[in-house]
Design a protein around this nucleic acid. Structure first.
Lengths: 355, 355
DNA sequence: TTGAAAGCGGTACCAC
DNA sequence: GTGGTACCGCTTTCAA
C-alpha cells in the first residue's frame, strides 16, 4: 500500500480542490474554510500523504538539516556530544547529519559535499584545516565545536588550560610529585593542545623544570595502554601520568596494572572528562569534569542562530567552565565511609575531595 | 565571494549557451563540441559553480543518501559499524545519514522523518518494532543490520548462537566450571538474545542444569561494573561470567578487581566482539571475534542493491561467520613465550590457544 | 475563500 | 551540437 508516493496534485484532485489549497491545509497557513479543510484533511489521512521533502526544501530554499563533523566516533565523549547536539536541534525542527571524516585524506571533499546538503555545519576542532573552515564559512554558517576556529568563525569550547594547570599543580604541590609525563597528542586537537599548555604552565608557575615531550598517542583506551607500555618499561619511571582524557587514562591504568604497578602507590594517574567509568574504576580516577552535553547544545543553538541570521556570522566565542574532580588515583585519601559509591565531588574553585 | 549560490541559468548566460548545455557539460552527458565545453567549463570554474543538490535530487527523484539507524553510539562496535558502512556507501556515491534514536519514545517519528530524506534505510536489530519496520519497508528499501527483521525484510547478521555455545562448552567441559552467569539483556537486541540462547544451549547439550536468569544490563562498560557488583557480592559467587560483549566484560573485569578477585583464578570472564582492548587487558580476554566492518559493508551493499532493484526487496538473509578467540581470562595457559604481544589466535573450528 | 500560475534549480526530451 | 521547454513536488503571490 502507498507505494508510489502521492503528490499534492493527486490529493488536490481527490479532494476536488487545487494544489494551493492542499499546501495551505497541510501547512496550516493561509485561510481555508472549515469545510474544505475537513475534506482535504480526510483525503490526506486516507491516503497517508506526506509532502515530499525535496519539493518542500527546494521551494523553501532550505534543507532543514545541519551537519555535525568530527574525526571519528568512539567512546562516551562523542556519544554525549551527539545527544547534546540533537536534543537542541530537534527544537528547531532540524535534523542532524553526522559525518565522520576518519581523518581520511579526502575528507575535505566529503565535507564540502555535505555542505551542499545542509543549512549549517558544526565542526569539531582539529578536524579540518583553517583554510577549509574559511572556505566553508564562505558558503554557509559554520561553528567550531571544542576548539577555536580561524578569526570570523564563531566557536564554543570548554576551559582546558586553567583546569589542567590546577590539576597538575595539585600533583606537583599537594602531592609533592616530580617527574610527571603527559599522554596525548597536542597537535591532534585544540582540546589536547590546551591541556598540554596547562600542564606546562603549572610547572612554570611552580618554578620547576619543564616536563619532557608528551607521548603522542590518540584518545582511545588502547592508546593509553600503548603509552603505558612506553613509559613504564623505561628505567626511570614517571611518578605520575597526566592523560589528555579519561579513556587514555583508563588505558594507562590497565597497562600499569598489567605490569604489576599499584595506583596510586607506585604511580599516579589522572584523566580529563569525568566519563561514567572514571568513578567506577579502582582506584577511582582524578579528573576534570567538562559539560560535554552542554557544549554540544550551545553549539547547536549558536549554529541555529547564525543560520537564521539572529546572530552575526562572525559571532561570539563561548567558553564553558570545567571542574576539578579529585578522587583516589592521584593519591588523595580513600573515602572515610567505606562501601559508599564513589561518585566524586566537584570542586569549582580550589579542591574538594571526592568520597 | 560566491555567497549567493549561482544557478545553472546564470552560468548559461555567462557562457552564452543554454541551461541544457550547462547541464550536459557539468554531468558529462550528451554531445557537446569541444569548444563550447571549454567555454562552459571555464565559466563553471571561474565562478565555482556546483549544481544545487536539491534541484538535482528533485529532478532525479533520488536523494543520493541512505540512513543508518541505531539506538545510540558508544564504543568500538558502533565506530567500526559506521566505518564499514560508509566505506561501502562511498563507492555508490551515496552519503550516509546517521540517526541515533537513543531509545526515545518518539523515535518512530524520527525514523519516519528520516525515511523521507533518504533512498534506503539500514536499521540495527532491536532498534525498532517489527510493525515500524514493516511500515518503513512499505515506503522504501530497508535492510536489518545485526538481527532478523520481520519476514520480507532482508537482513545481515553474524553467527551468535553456535559460537557462544562453543565458548560456553569450553568453560563447562574443558575447564570443568559450574555456576556460570550471563550478563546482558536478551530482550535488548537480537544479538544478545542469540548469545543468551547459545549459552543455555551449551548447558543443555552437556546435560547440565540450565543457568539462572541473566543479569539484564546494557552493553557498555559501566553496565559491566554494575553487573559485577550484583553478582560478586552474593554469598555464592559464580565461577565464571559470560558477557554479552567485550565492553561489559571489561566492566566486569574492573568490578572484579575492585573487589580484590583474581581473574582467572577466582573468577573466569569472557566477552564477545574481540575489540582492540580485549587483547590488551590483563588477563587478556577470551572472546568471540565478529567481523563488524564486514557486517556493515555487506549491509550497505545489500541496501544499495535493493534500492537499485538489482535484488528483490524481500531479499536474502546473510549470516557471517564468527571465531572463538581463546586467551587467558577463561583460565587457559599463559603464553609460553613471555613478552610477546597477546594478539590472540583465532580458532575457526575447535579451539586454538592464543599466545 | 479559492485557484491559476510563476517560480525554486536541474535534467532530459524533442526539435532545429 | 545546441536551444527551447516541459517536467520533478511544493510554496506563494496575485486575481478572481
Amino acid at each position: 500500500m502507498g507505494n508510489g508516493r502521492l503528490t499534492a496534485r493527486e490529493i488536490a484532485r481527490l479532494a476536488g480542490v487545487s494544489v494551493a489549497t492542499v499546501s495551505r491545509v497541510s501547512n496550516g497557513t493561509g485561510q481555508v474554510s472549515e469545510e474544505t479543510r475537513r475534506r482535504v484533511l480526510r483525503a490526506i489521512e486516507e491516503h497517508g500523504y506526506r509532502p515530499h521533502h525535496l519539493g518542500q526544501a527546494l521551494a523553501a530554499r532550505r534543507h532543514g538539516a545541519v551537519g555535525l563533523v568530527f574525526p571519528g566516533l568512539s567512546g562516551p565523549y562523542f556519544s554525549e556530544l551527539i545527544q547534546g547536539f540533537e536534543s537542541e536541534a530537534v527544537n528547531s525542527r532540524t535534523s542532524v547529519h553526522i559525518l565522520c571524516t576518519h581523518l581520511r585524506a579526502d575528507s575535505d571533499a566529503e565535507v564540502i559535499e555535505m555542505a551542499h546538503r545542509v543549512d549549517g555545519l558544526a565542526v569539531l576542532g582539529g578536524t579540518l584545516s583553517d583554510e577549509t573552515l574559511e572556505e566553508l564559512a564562505g558558503m554557509l554558517p559554520v561553528v567550531v565545536l571544542a576548539g577555536g576556529g580561524p578569526p570570523g568563525v564563531p566557536a564554543v569550547r570548554v576551559e582546558n588550560t586553567d583546569s589542567t594547570a590546577a590539576l597538575t599543580r595539585h600533583l606537583l604541590a599537594d602531592h609533592a610529585l616530580r617527574r610527571l609525563d603527559f599522554v596525548g597528542n597536542p597537535s591532534g586537537s585544540p582540546d589536547v593542545s590546551e591541556r598540554w599548555a596547562g600542564f606546562r604552565e603549572a610547572h612554570r608557575q611552580l618554578g620547576l623544570p619543564l616536563p619532557r615531550a608528551p607521548i603522542r598517542v590518540g584518545l582511545q583506551q588502547p592508546d593509553g595502554v600503548f603509552a603505558a607500555e612506553q613509559l613504564l618499561r623505561r628505567s626511570i619511571r614517571p611518578q605520575g601520568i597526566v592523560c589528555a582524557n579519561d579513556e587514555t587514562a583508563l588505558g594507562v591504568l590497565v597497562g600499569a596494572s598489567g605490569l604489576g604497578l599499584r595506583v596510586p602507590e607506585d604511580l599516579v594517574i589522572t584523566g580529563f572528562d569525568d566519563t561514567p567509568m572514571a568513578a567506577l574504576v579502582t582506584p577511582a580516577l582524578t579528573t576534570v569534569r567538562q559539560p560535554v552535553r552542554e557544549l554540544a547544545a550551545q553549539t547547536a543553538r549558536l549554529l541555529m542562530q547564525v543560520a537564521t541570521g539572529d546572530v552575526d556570522r562572525s559571532g561570539p566565542t563561548l567558553v564553558l567552565p570545567t571542574d576539578l574532580v579529585v578522587r583516589r588515583s592521584c593519591g588523595c585519601a580513600a573515602p572515610t565511609t567505606p562501601g559508599s559509591t564513589p561518585t566524586g565531588r566537584r570542586a569549582e574553585t580550589g579542591l574538594r575531595h571526592s568520597r
